Computed example of a mutant assay.
Amino acid sequence: MAAPRLSHRMGRLLEKAPALGPRPRVYSTSPAFAEVLRLPQKQLTRVVYPLRELGQHLAADSGPGLIEQGLFDPSLEDIGRAESIFEATARNRIEYLSSAVRLDHAPSLQQPEVCFIGRSNVGKSSLIKALFSLAPDVEVRISKKPGHTKKMNFFKVGKHFTLVDMPGYGYRAPKDFVDMVETYLKERNNLKRTFLLVDSVVGITKLDNIAIEMCEEFALPYVMILTKIDKSSKGYLLKQVLQIQKFVNTQTQGCFPQLFPISAVTNSGVHLLKCFIADITGSLKSQSR
């Protein structure tokens, strides 16, 4: 069981409000998210705000508290607007651009960029496929064999931003992985945020620690995504979240303090992540004009 002080801190992190309150009218969103909005309150919270749903499993003595300042907590309306950014239309083309094994082979782009990194078999390609679920013509290859992605794959999301799928580190990683990834992370001027994927079942591994140290050394702003949350019981998942949150709070400086639990299978947390990406790339602001 987590220490009382840590549980109290997580209580502050997870307990934004006892309920979502009246649901605002979402003016422009996908039919898929419109279906989510029709879910019963408990299911809606589980799908859209998985950290809140986890908070219900904290010990009663963890104590209520305010959410920590700076954490991401958008309205359902903002999340609905972000959905349209990830929806392929005639005016909003979402497409695979190119692949590269070196930075000088990467497409030269001015728009904001985000990249996804993680160890082999962490579920990176599955997550990216879930993010592009409203762009069915975009092919994101998923393999049961770890280490399938060997190059940096660039996907353009309309005029908003570019998403980069990086090769996995660890098992079957490309031989030139270090040179490829380090150069990209250090020199890609339009990179706005790095998303580091961690398997929620396994926790932070030695290989993940190396990736974290690299992000810290380069002073990169990065975010930790916890994948495969559908694979564990709520109790075990909460234990993992508490441990990883403690690590982020005490061992990192550049990591965004809020974790993003995700399931590419149930889509839990995916809508919130879309909104976060839209926000940090400035796309959400431009969408409201």
Rank of each mutant, 00 (worst) to 15 (best):
M1N: 02
A3E: 02
A3L: 08
R9A: 07
R12I: 01
L14Y: 05
E15W: 12
G21T: 13
S28G: 01
S30K: 04
P31A: 14
L37V: 12
L39K: 14
K42W: 03
T45K: 10
G55P: 01
S62L: 06
G65Q: 10
E68S: 12
Q69S: 08
Q69T: 12
F72G: 11
D73N: 09
P74K: 10
E77W: 00
R81Q: 09
F86A: 04
A90F: 13
R93N: 03
E95N: 08
L97H: 01
S99A: 04
V101E: 11
R102H: 09
P107M: 00
C115G: 02
I117P: 01
I117N: 04
R119Q: 10
V122W: 10
V122M: 07
S126A: 14
S126Q: 10
L127G: 04
L127R: 13
K129V: 01
A130Q: 09
L131S: 07
P136K: 07
D137C: 01
R141V: 10
G147T: 07
M152L: 15
K156L: 06
K159R: 15
L163G: 07
G168I: 10
A173G: 13
A173D: 04
P174W: 15
V181E: 02
K186E: 15
E187G: 15
R188T: 05
L191F: 12
L191Q: 14
T194Q: 03
L197I: 15
V198L: 05
S200C: 12
L207T: 13
L207E: 07
N209M: 06
A211G: 03
M214E: 14
E216K: 08
E217N: 14
I225Y: 05
L226V: 12
L226C: 12
T227C: 03
K228R: 14
K231L: 08
S233Y: 12
K234N: 09
L237N: 10
K239R: 15
K239W: 09
K239I: 00
K239Q: 10
K246P: 00
T252I: 05
C255Y: 09
F256S: 11
P257K: 05
F260C: 05
G269F: 01
L273T: 13
I277Q: 08
A278R: 02
D279T: 15
T281E: 00
S286M: 13
Q287G: 00
